[in-house]
């Protein structure tokens, strides 16, 4: 039986990789991929913790919801990226700095 800590470790690594990608990549698609990494790290955690709730299967349920939400989120995010590209003629987040005053 694989101990819980291994799941946690993999999940943490996955989350960190996602976070790293989100913070450093110069392409919005890659940032989006980083976000997916982080969501999947969370899903992995849900599934791993779901082992302790065999009766109701709450963890599996949440994982499913999250996958759906992530899919919807990706759809929305891609639409946003598309619009950003239309507006700025770039999807490099380092060059999109009109949030500052």
């Amino acid at each position: 039986m694989i101990p819980l800590s291994h799941f946690m470790f993999i999940s943490a690594v996955l989350f960190c990789l996602g976070l790293y990608a989100v913070l450093t990549k110069r392409n919005a698609i890659q940032v989006l991929i980083g976000i997916e990494f982080m969501i999947n790290a969370a899903i992995l955690n849900f599934v791993a913790f779901g082992r302790f709730d065999k009766a109701t299967g709450g963890g599996q349920m949440f994982a499913l919801f999250t996958i759906v939400l992530a899919a919807a989120g990706v759809a929305v995010a891609l639409a946003i990226i598309l619009n950003v590209y239309k507006h700025f003629r770039t999807i490099n987040p380092a060059k999109i700095d009109s949030l500052k005053d």
């Binding site: 976070l19 989100v22 913070l23 450093t24 940032v31 987040p93 380092a94 999109i96 700095d97 009109s98 949030l99 500052k100 005053d101």
Partner: peptide, 14 residues
């Protein structure tokens, strides 16, 4: 801190 870049905000938040 207010560079206008999303990723800088994120780093700050983090």
């Amino acid at each position: 801190f207010q560079s206008g870049r999303l990723q800088h905000y994120l780093i700050t938040m983090l």
